[in-house]
Each structure stands twice: as structure tokens, then as C-alpha cells.
């Protein structure tokens, strides 16, 4: 029973990094596909396209960040003996990780689509790059909010 707590923490960290990462991969993929389409016709837009393609990638980083915070909290990092984690504390950490996992997954895909649309926009209007970057960044807000909540929750859990 004493390992169930730590297992729940690992599960939470894996969910956060995994789901957010998968979401980002899909999002970056969608944006990249569109970017390739535009660059086939206009290779000069590489810089702008790269910027927009990278935007959905942040959710993966957030997921990884939360995963680190979670496993740091229980002392898994560094290979030393871990702190004793109870089942309910482990469950708490698992739930604290979920906002980043779920919101990261969905927002990354949504952001990927927005980025794709914006890449198509700069294909037609290269002068509007500034505005094109703001639109996908709006989606980022919710990923950041979820990240914030996850961090607050993780900090709040007393071991």
C-alpha cells in the first residue's frame, strides 16, 4: 500500500507530460503541414511560418514542467529516497496534474488549427504578421491558466 501514493504521483506526471505533449505534437503537425503548403509556393516566408508553427508547442513544455514539479515534490528526482506519500496525497497530486493534461491536449490542437489558419492568412497578407501571431496566442491564455492552477494546487498539497 505504501507504494500506491507514489504510483499515483507518477501517473499524474505521466498524464501531464503525455497528454500535453501529444496535443502539442498534433498542433505543431497541423501548423507545419500548412506551413509546408505555403512555403512550397513562397519559400521566403520561412521565418514567419516557423514562429507560428512553434506556438502550439508550448503546451508540451507546460506539461513537462508540471511533471517535473510533481516528481520533485515527492523527491523522485535525483534517485534518493522519496518522501513518504500517502494515498490521498498521491491522489491529490494526480488531480492537480489533470488541468494541464486536459487543457494542454485540447488547447494545443485548437491552437494548431488557429496557427494553420494564420499561416494561410500571412500567405495572402504578409504585412499582417503581428496580428497573425496574436490570434493563436489567445488560445495560449487558457493553457497558461491551467498551468497556473496546476502549480498552485501542487504547492498547496502538504506532504
Amino acid at each position: 500500500m505504501e507504494f500506491l501514493g507514489i504510483a499515483l504521483v507518477i501517473c499524474g506526471a505521466a498524464l501531464a507530460a503525455g497528454f500535453a505533449g501529444v496535443g502539442s505534437a498534433i498542433g505543431v503537425g497541423i501548423a507545419g503541414q500548412c506551413g509546408a503548403g505555403v512555403m512550397t509556393e513562397d519559400p521566403g516566408k520561412f521565418g514567419l511560418v516557423l514562429l507560428l508553427q512553434a506556438l502550439p508547442g508550448t503546451q508540451g513544455i507546460y506539461g513537462l514542467l508540471i511533471a517535473f514539479v510533481a516528481i520533485l515534490k515527492v523527491g523522485l528526482l535525483g534517485g534518493g529516497t522519496s518522501v513518504d506519500v500517502g494515498v490521498f496525497q498521491g491522489l491529490g497530486i494526480l488531480f492537480a496534474c489533470l488541468p494541464t493534461a486536459i487543457v494542454g491536449f485540447i488547447s494545443a490542437i485548437a491552437q494548431g488549427k488557429t496557427s494553420a489558419a494564420c499561416i494561410q492568412m500571412i500567405a495572402k497578407r504578409p504585412e499582417e504578421t503581428g496580428k497573425a501571431v496574436i490570434l493563436p496566442a489567445m488560445v495560449e491564455t487558457y493553457a497558461v491558466l491551467a498551468l497556473l492552477l496546476s502549480i498552485i494546487l501542487l504547492n498547496g498539497i502538504q506532504l
Binding site: 497541423i30 503541414q33 500548412c34 506551413g35 509546408a36 503548403g37 505555403v38 512550397t40 509556393e41 513562397d42 494553420a116 499561416i119 494561410q120 500567405a123 495572402k124
Partner: peptide, 11 residues
């Protein structure tokens, strides 16, 4: 995505 983007650029 690819095809539409490319056509957008061609547009």
C-alpha cells in the same frame, strides 16, 4: 491543410 495552404499562397 497542406493543399489549402498551398492554394492560399497560389491565390
Amino acid at each position: 491543410g497542406y493543399a489549402v495552404s498551398r492554394l492560399r499562397a497560389m491565390e
